[in-house]
Amino acid sequence: MATTNDLRNGLVLNIDGQLWQVVEFQHVKPGKGPAFVRTKIKNVLSGKTVDRTFNAGLKIDTATVDRRDMQFSYRDGEDFVFMDLKSYEQTYVPAATVGDAAAYMLEGQDVIVAFHDDDVLFVELPAAVVLTVSHTEPGLQGDRSSAGTKPATLETGAEIQVPLFLNEGDRVKVDTRSGAYISRVSD
C-alpha cells in the first residue's frame, strides 16, 4: 500500500483487480480546494491509456513487479524465448505480450522482462537500438518531395523513414519507443 505522494513513472498500480502502469503524473495544488494528483495510466495487459485523478494523500494499492534482465534467445513459433542472465532459465513469452518491441529485437539482445506472480507483463527494450538497413531504394540527389526521407526495411523487418543519403548495409540507431531514425552509426 502506498499513497499518491509515492507515485512515479513506471510504478504499477492494482486498480479494481487490473494492473495499470503510471505513464505520467502531476501533483496539482489549486488556489482553492484540496490538492490532487493527475495521472495518465496504461493498462499493462491491453495497452489502453486513460487519465485518472486521485485526491492527494489517498492510499493506493501497488502491484509487485519483478523486472529481470534477460536476453532474447530465439523465436519458437508464435513465442519469443528469453533467457534469464542470472539463472539461465528460459521463459517463453507470447507474441501478443511482446507487442511492438518485436520489430526492434535481435537474437542476443538484452532486454528487461517484467513479471507479476510469475506471469510476464511486458518486455522493455533499451531506448535506442542499432540495426542494419537490409533494403532501401537509392536516394536521388535533389529529390526533396518527401522532406528528404525514404522508406527503409531493417534487418528485423521493421520499416522506418531514413534520410536520402543512407544505403543498404548502413547501420542506424533507432528510437524503440517511436520507431524514428536517430542517427547513422559508423563502425
Rank of each mutant, 00 (worst) to 15 (best):
residue 88 Y to V: 07
residue 78 E to Y: 01
residue 63 A to P: 01
residue 93 V to H: 11
residue 70 M to G: 00
residue 77 G to E: 06
residue 65 V to I: 11
residue 86 K to T: 14
residue 79 D to A: 08
residue 92 Y to V: 08
residue 76 D to W: 03
residue 91 T to P: 01
residue 91 T to K: 12
residue 83 M to P: 00
residue 59 K to N: 10
residue 61 D to Y: 00
residue 85 L to S: 04
residue 78 E to R: 04
residue 95 A to I: 11
residue 80 F to S: 06
residue 71 Q to A: 09
residue 64 T to A: 11
residue 92 Y to K: 15
residue 85 L to C: 08
residue 78 E to H: 02
residue 67 R to F: 05
residue 76 D to L: 14
residue 57 G to F: 04
residue 94 P to V: 15
residue 95 A to W: 04
residue 59 K to Y: 02
residue 70 M to W: 00
residue 60 I to D: 00
residue 57 G to C: 05
residue 82 F to D: 02
residue 61 D to F: 00
residue 90 Q to Y: 08
residue 57 G to K: 04
residue 63 A to V: 06
residue 93 V to I: 15
residue 89 E to H: 09
residue 65 V to F: 06
residue 81 V to A: 10
residue 57 G to E: 04
residue 79 D to W: 05
residue 63 A to E: 10
residue 87 S to R: 08
residue 62 T to S: 08
residue 94 P to M: 15
residue 62 T to Y: 01
residue 58 L to Q: 13
residue 71 Q to I: 13
residue 66 D to T: 10
residue 78 E to G: 07
residue 82 F to L: 10
residue 83 M to V: 15
residue 59 K to C: 00
residue 92 Y to N: 13
residue 80 F to L: 09
residue 95 A to P: 00
residue 75 R to F: 01
residue 82 F to P: 01
residue 84 D to S: 04
residue 71 Q to D: 05
residue 85 L to M: 13
residue 82 F to A: 03
